[in-house]
Simulated scan of single mutants.
Amino acid sequence: MNYAQLLLPDFSLIACGWLLCRYTALDRRVWDQVESLVYYFLFPVLLFHSIVKSPIDLGAASHLLAAGIGIGLAGIGLAYALPHMPGLRRHIDRRDHAASAQVAFRFNSFICLAVAERLAGAEGLLVIAVLIGVCVPLMNVAAVWPMARHGGSGFLAQLVRNPLIVATGSGLVLNLAGVQLPGWMQPTLGRLGAASLALGLLAAGAGMQFGALSRGKLLGMSVLAIRHLVLPLVAWGLCRGLGLHGAQAAVLMAFSAVPTASSAYVLAARMGYNGAYVAALVTLSTLLGMASLPFALSLPR
């Protein structure tokens, strides 16, 4: 599998956004409005649709779900612990950490879907749908919590008002309740989801400032190391410990190593944090995925 070719579209869209913002009339005034559209409408539609469209059988996939949740909790715990680790605490800006912790554990759903289909066809898509349906709500809540806490706003109030949390939570409830969306809605929701991905990546490129990394190099290296090195090793241990094989094991390993979610930038920017810093991390994560995916899939299972 050519991972560079698989990740090239995401990287190209980020680069296009950067060029458009800096060298055309489509400056920050335009991209601020694009970010609002993506955050309040397009991304919620994407998340809701991706969760609802694939029924989750909790009983048949109990070990897989345990592994996916285990990976998520490991990433969340390690990311949250960074400011408290000896040798790191004095070099980490707490506000930048609140915005960038999500980079360590969130994942790019579209890349997950593409890799799963290439690895195991229809069975792979079913496996990744289960992981997305259960892990997206967990990781979105974990992404919002440090920013709400650091910003002094009520966590529950932020959850109720956050469109990504509302979309993922309602999607999971409908999925578990067995509610199916009408067929005539599927094409519209699918196209809105595709638009959210493209515009989200363009907005991330428009907001990107690599100079923002200069004051947070250690933090950036830490969250990216968790995302692209530690979590694949955690997934490998869980595969062996829970006895996962075949498509489930292959897709879980890929799930642990894909680049971080492109919506990480939009979430940080809309909540008033250093979006430029997070956008640069999203770009670096996309590049690192070209190495972490083959590394994760090469581990013996």
Results as ranks from 00 to 15, higher is better:
Ser292Lys: 05
His97Val: 02
Ser292Arg: 06
Pro294Arg: 09
Met221Thr: 05
Ala225Asn: 06
Leu58Trp: 04
Pro137Arg: 03
Arg29Lys: 14
Ser263Val: 11
Leu244Arg: 01
Val166Ala: 13
Met271Val: 00
Ala268Thr: 08
Ala269Gly: 03
Leu64Phe: 02
Leu174Cys: 00
Ser36Ala: 15
Ala250Val: 11
Ala198Ser: 14
Cys112Gln: 11
Ile14Val: 13
Ile128Ser: 09
Met271Cys: 07
Pro83Glu: 04
Thr283Ile: 07
Asp27Phe: 00
Ala120Met: 07
Gly169Ile: 02
Ser170Leu: 12
Ala212Arg: 12
Gly178Glu: 05
Val45Ile: 11
Tyr265His: 13
Gly272Ser: 08
Ile226Gln: 01
Ala101Gly: 02
Leu119Tyr: 00
Met147His: 00
Glu123Ser: 07
Ala198Asp: 07
Trp236Leu: 12
Ser62Cys: 08
Leu299Glu: 12
Val166Thr: 11
Thr168Tyr: 12
His150Glu: 12
Gly190Met: 04
Val130Arg: 10
Gly211Ile: 10
Ala99Phe: 08
Gly17Phe: 05
Leu26Lys: 06
Val258Ala: 09
Val115Tyr: 08
Gly151Pro: 09
Cys112Glu: 12
Leu156Ser: 10
Val282Arg: 07
Phe255Val: 03
Ala269Leu: 07
Leu20Thr: 00
Tyr80Trp: 14
Glu35Val: 07
Ser54Cys: 10
Glu123Val: 06
Gly207Lys: 01
Gly121Thr: 08
Ala194Phe: 02
Tyr80Ser: 11
Gly220Thr: 11
Ala122Asn: 12
Leu287Pro: 03
Phe107Arg: 13
Arg215Gln: 15
His245Cys: 04
Ala250Asp: 13
Leu6Pro: 09
Thr24Tyr: 06
Ile56Trp: 04
Ser12Arg: 00
Ala167Gln: 01
Arg215Ala: 15
Gly237Ala: 10
Leu113His: 02
Arg29Ile: 09
Arg215Met: 14
Val258Pro: 10
Leu281Thr: 02
Cys239Gln: 07
Asn2Glu: 12
Ala114Glu: 15
Gln158Glu: 15
Ile14Phe: 03
Leu174Glu: 02
Ala79Phe: 00
Leu213Ser: 06
